[in-house]
Amino acid sequence: MKNTKNSEKKVKYPYFWAVLYGLLLTGYGVFSLLDAFVIPRDLVYVTDPQESGETNSLLSDQQEDRETEPIITENSYECSQFSVHITTFNRYDTQIYVADVVLSDISYLKAGLAGGVFGRNVRDTTSSIAEENGAVFAINGDYYGFRDSGFVMRNGYLYRDIPRSGSGNEALAVYGDGSFEIFDEAESDALELAQEGALHIFSFGPGLVEDGAVTVDEDSEVEQAMRSNPRTAIGVIEPLHYVLLVSDGRTSESEGLSLYQLAQVMESLGCTQAYNLDGGGSSTMWFMGEVINKPTTSGNTIKERSVSDIVYIGLS
């Protein structure tokens, strides 16, 4: 007992280090989480060509084209520049929404960024970004802002040329002639792709269909999704003729699709190339001011998740 008392006297504050270190560690952990999920950073503001004084013949053409009255129905939009036809069907116990898009020019297939800003943790809902950009139709993109790596090219601007580490990470390039190319990021140079005429590079994946054949098997999954989920995919039937697909999932009405099922659907729709975009709670399809599908993260509530970017069809 005497020894114990002596040893207690030696250390005046026995838990001082534990308390101080615990506080520092907690603070560091909270900061790491905020940095990863909340704090916007690495911001690049998108320049408006009209504000910067740049002239663009396409813009003038589009403004003239707007005078042509489009034909709009509940599930379609047709004008002289493009057409969007949306069909809905059920397969694999899942509600699937497919937009068949035909463009007269690749410039009508556009990408929108949340707040018009490129950066980490800059987010907004698909519908808000679509409305800000004057879109006719939109789906969520690859949610680039959730990661620090992965090629990001939108509307001809190369924002990030850092490939995702590791092999087998496939990205999608959309070229000026309307063609798609699915490639391994680690073995590619984003700047070279830009010089070769890429307008958009999406970094999520994997590729679902290549040369008209399914390229994933029943065991294939992205690390973020190990089973049936809501999905978003984009595919090309031929240059300027595209399929944009969103499926529901995680609800009693819709189980969701595996990547293999998604690839099979894209193949059955006639896609020669098809690519998986961000899914889960991000999966959203928007048309003429309305969210068409039932986006959900938890499966309990139908609510749009905020994302970094969208792919949209529009004149503006």
Binding site: Y28, G29, F31, S32, L33, D35, A36, F146, D148, Q224
Partner: peptide, 14 residues
């Protein structure tokens, strides 16, 4: 933290 980030599909240098 690594578990949270991997499940969410992201990573952090911190």
């Amino acid at each position: 933290l690594r578990g949270i980030f991997e499940i969410a599909g992201t990573a952090s240098v911190y």
